[in-house]
Structures are given as structure tokens and as C-alpha cells.
Design a protein around this nucleic acid. Sequence first.
DNA 1: GCCGTTTTCGGCCCGACTGTTTTCAGTCG
Length: 584
Amino acid sequence: MPTDVRDSAFVARALRDIALYLELKGENAFKVRAYNLAADRVLAVGERLADVVREGRLAELPNIGQALADKVVTLHTRGTLPLLEELRASYPPAILALLELPDLGPRKVAALWTSLGVGSLPALEEALRQGRVRGLKGFGEKSEAKLLAGLEQYRSAHARRRLGDVLPVALALRDELARAPGVVRIEVAGSVRRFCETVSDVDVIASAAEAAPVLEALAQRPGVATVLGKGDSKCSVRLQDGLQVDLRVLPDEDFATALHHFTGSKAHHVRLRGRARDLGLTISEWGVFRGEEKLAVPEEAALYRLLGMAYVPPELREDAGEFEAALAGTLPTDLVEPADIQGAVHAHTTWSDGRASLLDMARAAAARGLAYLTITDHSASAGYASGLSAERLRQQWQEVDAVQAQVPQVRLLRGLEVDILQNGALDLPDALLEQLDIVIASVHVRHGQDADAMTARVLRALDHPCTDVLGHPTGRLLQRREPSPLRMEEVFARAAERGVALEVNGNPERLDLHAAHVRAALSAGCRLVAGVDAHDTASFANVDYAARTARKGGARRSDVLNTLGTEAFLTALRERHPRRGRRG
DNA sequence: GCCGTTTTCGGCCCGACTGTTTTCAGTCG
């Protein structure tokens, strides 16, 4: 039985399903919340869930008492739970899908099921078309139309979107609305601001004396397909590609608290509100209050000061330990940020599958003010990417030298993204690898190996004396390919032991390592590089995604090797390989 | 179902918006 079916994601999913069924049953809302909070907690434990279960430490976790601890153990060890089976058996199998529709919550789904026997999306559509829904208490003609539209919407765009697809749209929208009449401050909030790797919509918060003109600017904007709702302070629209945008406009004195409120996460806010209660304060999007008195909160930082805590940057607001750290004053103040990155690590050129020449890449790196650029094309076995043979790699060095003479502003480093072969060996001879400034070792083929084989393969690559960096460690492609079944704890431990840095790959389709892995890698003592995985000149912008993903995982500037200047970076790599870097 | 230097019982964040309402319930974030 593969262990990964019962990992933390599986257990969390089961707990959330139980919560949904309990809502359908009309159970106590706080009981429902308890299951959801437990699911959050299990996910936060991540890779170590198996350890926590084995050592019987579940009930020590916040929000997990003895009853839930027992259920998690059963889910983890047996893959199911009597309670869950019972709940599933009392409803049609596809009923939970109904809850995915907008404006359809547990109460209404329960009504549809008990009154009409509607328990699936197709059954709902049929009932709607027969006009049977509108007669139901709480439903009318508008509900009918909305649900039909919702079914359509569900089919086309119910999946979450990758941050990389949404962030540019959100920032452009913000900059455009910033020019609407009377806007004082405006910012993107929500999961986009928290830099979550996938997001479901865009939240924008603005301040202005008059809300109406700003709301109107969004409603009238080209590219808006539907205005979903519009009130005195809020406007929701759906763009032509299906992306939902929620805009809220408030007086400037409320901007900071609103921005904070709509940035979330919910879990982070629950902690803050508990703290506020202890101090005799209440927090809402309208402000921080002591009794009737509204306290001034000109900036988000002021809100945290009122709570006697250090400021928590948006990326960290996930209740992943940041609350306790901010309270204790141990939250790092030197978290890495994009501007700290001095060198572009992991770049391809037309020598392999890059779309820009070595010269163009060097010029683009110089234009971005980068101090160095690692030329790391693919190695021979990556035939699909025109990987370099030993001979072609040597030829490339001549061009590196020639381009270096033409573009002296940026230091070009000889490198290679060498394939980790199926058995864990590296693709080119050691004698060649030893002459490089930097070797990134990556898995590109045979992702389907089982956990034992894949882990052994990567550990062997980490043991290779020439490996400097493990590239995109899990190989996942967001929404397209699952991470390989590596035992990450073992990978992190070995990488720390061998001094191999782990890449935080900033390609928006990868974001690999992701933030939770970054956190685990750091506590294992690993070093990181923020990789751009550039295949053209535009993808130097990936440095933002890499740095902010590392930041979300709690990485400090000193944890990321390419925050160092050129010589210090090379020294850091050579610490492990004294023989490296001798040019032949 | 969880939690506790106010509580082992009685809280648990809360406001905006919408539609079906004639005073409010449900959904959403």
C-alpha cells in the first residue's frame, strides 16, 4: 500500500468532507469549524504527519483534542473512518459538488436534497430546467437563473488558477484603478497578496472619499463580462476569462484595517482576534476598537503594534507559526525579498532549449542590474531539450568567454543543469563537471518511479561531489504534474549534510520547492538558491516568484546563496568543492 | 469538537450583500 494515499493532504480532505456533511446535516457550526481547523492543522504538520501519528503526539497540536486525534489516527492508518462512511452512505455520492456552486451553501443544498431529491449537478440542472427549484422555500426566479449560470461557470472555470497567471492581471488592474477619480491608496489583497501558489479570485482594496466613482470604474472597465454585484462599498465582477474580481472602497482612515482584513488568511485572523480579545480589543475590517472607542490604524504595522506584536508580512500570514513568533519577537526581520537577489541562477540559452541567445541573455541580465548569470543549459541525455554533450559544452565555454568580453557588466558563470539519470548518476563525466563554476542536478525524466527508487536516485545525486544545487527538487508542475514521490525529509537531511543547496525554482508553473517545503528544508539546515529557470529574457522576472516563495517559507537573506555578491557566491559553492572553478 | 489566570460550561469573528423576505436567512469572505 503506497503511503502517500494517507498523507496529510488525504487526511485533511477527509476531515473537510466530514465538515461538509455535518453542515448538510445541520450540525452545530462550531463542531463543523472544529473539523476544518483540524484539517488546517494536519496540513500544517505536512510531511511529518506519519511521525506525529506514530509518536502519539496529535492531541498536543492546537485545535486537535482526543476525539479528533483518534479520528486522524484511524484515517491515517486505515484510510477511512466509520463516521465518514456513515455520512457518505446517507447522501448521494456527488452531493458535495453542489456546494461548489456560487450562492449554494449547506442549507440550500440540504433543502434541495430533502425536498426535491436533488443530489448531484446533473439532477440540479434537470430540476432547474423543469422549474421545480423556484417553488422551493428560499428559492425564486433569480436563484434559478443564478444557479443555471453557476452550473455553466462551474464547468468552464471552477478550478483554481496559478498565481503566475493571475498576479500580472491583478497588478495591472490595481494600477488602472489607481487612476480612478479620488483614489488615495489601493492595493491587491487576498491570497494573491499572501503569494499563495494558486488563487481563486482577486481582491482589491482602495480608499477614496467617494466610493461610487471607483466602483463604477471597475464595473465599466473593458474586459468585464458580468457585474456580479454592486453596492455602496463593494463591486464584484467576472472578467471575460472567468476570473472574479472583488473591489472594496472605503474612507482612507479604514484602509489599513480593510486591507489587513481582506488579506487574510482566515486562520491568521482567528489567532489575532483571540489575542485582541485578551487585550480587551475587537478587530473587524472597519477598525480596531476598545469598547466604543475606535483606535487609529494608519498602517497595518499599527494594528500589530496595538496587539503588542511584531509586524507580520502578508506572505507569512498562514498560522504556520508566525503568530507565536511575532508575539515572542522572534520573527525574522531580514526575510529575503526580490531586491536582495544579486545573481540569476539557472538560465538556459539557444545552446539547449532556451529561446534567447547567450548574448541576449547576458545583456538582459545586465539590464536588470544583476551581478552574475549562471549559464546552465541541459546535459546530453535531455535529448528533448537538445542537451549538451561534453564536446558541445566545451564549445559553449568559448562563447561564454566571447560574450563576457562584450558584456563586462555581468559576470558569466560556467554551469550546467545536468540530468540525474535513472540510477542517480550524473549525465556527464566528473572530469568535465569539475571544471564548472556551478552544477545544478535535476530530474527530468522517469518521474513515475516509486518512492524508494526516486529517493535513492536523488540521494545518490546529492552525494555526488560535483552537485552544487538540486534543481526543482520535486519536479511538480502546478495543476499538471504531481510532485515525484520523494521522501523529502531524507532529501533535506542529506542536502544539509552534503552542503548541497536546494533550488526554489521561480518558474510560475513550478514554484518548486514550495513554501512549506522551504520551511522544512530550512529547519533541516539546508541552504537555498532562488532560481529563475530562465528560457528567455523575460523570465528573469521569475526571480520575484523565487524570492517571494522562499520568503513565504520563512527564508532569510542569509539562507539564500544568490543574495551574495559574485565572489562570495562562488566562495560559498567552492566551500564544498575546493577543486572547483579552475579554468582549464 | 475544542478550550480555559474570568469559565470544566458556555463560548467559539463578524459585517456586507442578495434574494426572498414583510423583518430575515443564507452565503460569502
